[in-house]
Every structure is written in C-alpha cells, then in structure tokens.
C-alpha cells in the first residue's frame, strides 16, 4: 500500500487554478520527484499535502488515514516533515536550537531532543555551525537547516522543496548522498521538488510532472525526460 495517496486534489486562488485534479502516490521507502516549470503548482501541492491550504476537492491519505483538512502541526505529528522553498529559519535561535525545536516533536525530553538534533546536524555536515545564530548562515546553509529541522521531527515522509537550489555541483552530490543514505538506512520516504535535474536523476525512482496545475506526465525518470510533452513545456529549453 502507498504511504501517500493523493487523489484528484485541486486548489484555486481567486480564479487562478493553481492545482487541478492532481493524483499521485508514493510507496513506502521510495524517493519520488516533482518537476515542472515555474508557477506549475508544485509548492502549492506541497502546501496542500502539508495542511497549509485545504484542497478544494479530492482526497489525501497518509499511512492509510485521510489527512486533508488537518492543520500543519497535526500533519507533522502524523509523520510528514516539510521544508519551505523560501526558507523560514528561526533567525534569533542557534542552528542547534532550530533543530531541537524540530526534534522535540519526536522526543520525550529536551535533553533527548538535543541529542537527536546533534545527530541530524552531523548527518547534514552542520555540526560545526551548531552554536552559530541561524541568521548568520549563507542561503545554502539555511536550506540545510530547513532539511535538518524537518528530518529531526522524525517523519515517515519528507517533503523537500528545492533544497538544492543555489548549490554548486559538488554540494548537490553531497546532499544527494545524504538523502540516499538516510533513505537506505532508515527507509525514509522522500518527495522532492527540484529544478536541479542532476539531483532528480540521481535520486528519484519516479517523477511527476506538473504544468499549469495539472499532471501532464509521470513515470520512470528515463522515460519522463524523453516525453515530448515534458520537453515542450519544461526540459525542452535545455534540450534544444
């Protein structure tokens, strides 16, 4: 059975159709990617799944239970961690404390949360920044803090919104390695929105393509990138 099962969801913003009849599912332990041109509705899709917006219609099942309409904090506690495309760090707190807040979601005590936070920071090569204020970090570092915080909540499913943007190719490969390792070691299921195709091709077993709020293609990465519809609206610019 799929861990996440999204069926026919839609979302309008005052007449703008940001999502229309989108369905997809992610099996337990998989890494899937969602791609599409700017404004395609990818982030909106995350926000609907994560409870920021109520879908206009359709259903979302996670771990067998319907979650559409729950609040973001309830969805996090249900086991979905998410990052924000426009990062939202706690600027006045240290990097460690940022992650401790996340880790408290799955920890019985502050002491335990601190331990867990330190472990996640090491995993993401942020341990040496633990005591720095989050406000002092570079953007790629802040993105990693986003990831660390979300991971520390102990999710079953991790939603990553363009966490590779702005990274150098070697840094992308580093992040890819981290996600692959976590996925293999803990079975964490991952859905990533990404424009960096290098990361998508390296990680994803399955790709969903959105365009003007609709799913125009999905399938194995090798097939999706050859799909004429996808080439036309998105990847074409680079391919041609």
């Amino acid at each position: 059975m799929a861990l996440l099962e999204v069926v026919g969801i839609g979302k309008h913003f005052r007449g703008l159709r940001a999502l229309h009849d989108v369905s997809f599912s992610i099996p337990q332990g998989a890494i899937h990617a969602m791609i599409g041109p700017n404004g395609a509705g990818k982030t909106t899709c995350f926000n609907v799944v994560a409870g920021v917006y109520k879908p206009d219609g359709g259903s979302i099942r996670f771990d067998g239970k319907p979650i559409a309409g729950l609040r973001p904090d309830q969805i996090c506690r249900a086991g979905i961690g998410r990052t924000f495309q426009v990062v939202k760090p706690f600027p006045g707190l240290s990097v460690l404390d940022n992650v401790v807040v996340g880790a408290l979601n799955a920890s019985a005590s502050v002491a335990q949360a601190r331990k867990e936070a330190m472990r996640v920071l090491e995993l993401l090569h942020l341990a040496d920044k633990a005591k720095h204020p989050a406000a002092s970090l570079t953007l790629p570092e802040r993105k990693r803090v986003e990831v660390a915080r979300a991971m520390a909540t102990g999710p079953k499913l991790l939603l990553l919104d363009e966490v590779m943007a702005g990274l150098r190719p070697t840094e992308v490969d580093e992040m890819v390695a981290v996600f692959r390792r976590v996925n293999q070691e803990t079975g964490l299921t991952i859905l990533l929105i990404e424009h960096v195709m290098r990361a998508v091709m390296a990680l994803a077993q399955h790709i969903v393509v959105l365009h003007y709020g609709e799913k125009i293609a999905e399938g194995a990465p090798q097939e999706v990138v050859k799909d004429p519809k996808v080439l036309e609206c998105y990847l074409g610019e680079e391919a041609l």
Partner: peptide, 8 residues
C-alpha cells in the same frame, strides 16, 4: 509557519 510545520 515554521513552528506549525514542526508539529507545534
């Protein structure tokens, strides 16, 4: 928003 996303 970030607080809510972390389960608070």
């Amino acid at each position: 928003d970030a607080a809510a996303a972390l389960g608070i």
